[in-house]
């Protein structure tokens, strides 16, 4: 038998052999994906690294691009407006992810404690996640109105003086964060709830027998076992939050006094308002470098399991 098959491999031409057919099929199937990624992902990545070194208005032929060496890079490092947008972006990300994780986890713990109407409650909390950000930003922009806005009118019932939500530079970024947390809360809750349901009930039983308090059960069982979920949620939402654009574009356009100016909004403005495509790309690369460092740190912090263990 073995002799026969060996003889056969010698006589059949290579393109008939099973291993060749498998390899050819695989590469043929992968080819369209690879070509697409080369054009729309890998190519643009290399292009952005190259565009960092050029000055170009974005509309003339590419040959008009002027080589400026490290000019853009040094300018970014001293650009107060860009660095301000950088700070705002990080404050925003920390506030949004921090409150999303904490409030979402608390809600998930609460919902984990009840048995009735769970589906309905989950769906209702999740609904704003699905709703378009543009429409919700328009709605909240109106609710944030100082004089007759819905929120201030509600606050006036309990005698809280009007808050200048989007007008006060010290508050504006947090007001936008509030809106984004409201919209995203259901997502955090659903993910955490799934993570909580996956923790075996026996662990809690055993802890109860040993006389552990609810607080101890949370710190010693729930939180450690939720670690992969937490890692996943934090990595995904941090990367997402650092790219915020729509609510800023609709509600404040970076104002007041640049208090809500964020990097992606500023990259957009630099390219399409000031026609500085090379410089805008440099800003994007700068943010990306920082995100990369942060992601690596996050993955290290939660080393055991890593991202893939979530799936």
């Amino acid at each position: 038998m073995a002799v026969a098959s060996a003889a056969q491999t010698h006589t059949t031409p290579f393109w008939r052999r099973r291993s060749f057919i498998q390899a050819a099929t695989g590469w043929l199937f992968a080819a369209p994906i690879l070509i697409y990624f080369t054009i729309f992902v890998f190519g643009p990545i290399l292009a952005s690294l190259a565009m960092m070194f050029f000055k170009w208005n974005g509309f003339g032929p590419l040959t008009q691009a002027e080589f400026v060496g490290l000019g853009n890079v040094t300018e970014v490092a001293g650009d107060e407006k860009f660095l301000g947008s950088f700070r705002n972006t990080f404050v925003y990300a920390i506030v949004v992810v921090g409150s999303g994780v904490i409030v979402g986890l608390m809600l998930a713990l609460v919902l984990n404690g009840v048995t009735k109407f769970v589906g309905f409650v989950r769906s209702t909390y999740y609904l704003p996640v699905m709703l378009p950000m543009t429409a919700m930003a328009l709605l909240w922009g109106l609710m944030f109105q100082v004089r007759y806005g819905f929120l201030n009118q509600i606050l006036s019932f309990v005698n809280i003086p009007p808050v200048r939500w989007l007008i006060n530079p010290d508050i504006a970024l947090y007001s936008i964060s509030l809106m984004v947390v409201w919209k995203g809360l259901g997502w955090y809750m659903v993910i955490f709830l799934a993570g909580l349901k996956a923790i075996p009930e026996e662990y809690y039983e055993a802890a109860r027998v040993d006389g552990a308090t609810g607080w101890q059960r949370f710190w010693k069982i729930t939180l450690p076992l939720l670690k992969p979920t937490l890692l996943f949620v934090i990595v995904v939402t941090v990367i997402g939050s650092l790219q915020v654009f729509s609510p800023i574009f609709i509600m404040t356009q970076g104002g007041p006094a640049n208090a809500t100016n964020v990097v992606v909004y500023w990259v957009y403005m630099t390219a399409f308002q000031f026609l500085r495509f090379g410089y805008a790309t440099t800003q994007a690369v700068y943010l990306f470098a920082v995100i990369l460092v942060i992601t690596v740190i996050q993955l290290r912090l939660f080393r055991e399991g890593g991202l893939t263990s979530y799936y």
Binding site: L34, P44, A47
Partner: peptide, 23 residues
């Protein structure tokens, strides 16, 4: 090849925004 594709998940959309627009 799959790892190569997967590594692009770490690359946020805004990095390639402008080259993609130009393309």
């Amino acid at each position: 090849v799959f790892m190569l594709l997967l590594s692009t998940m770490m690359i946020p959309g805004f990095l390639t925004l402008i080259p993609r627009y130009v393309l």
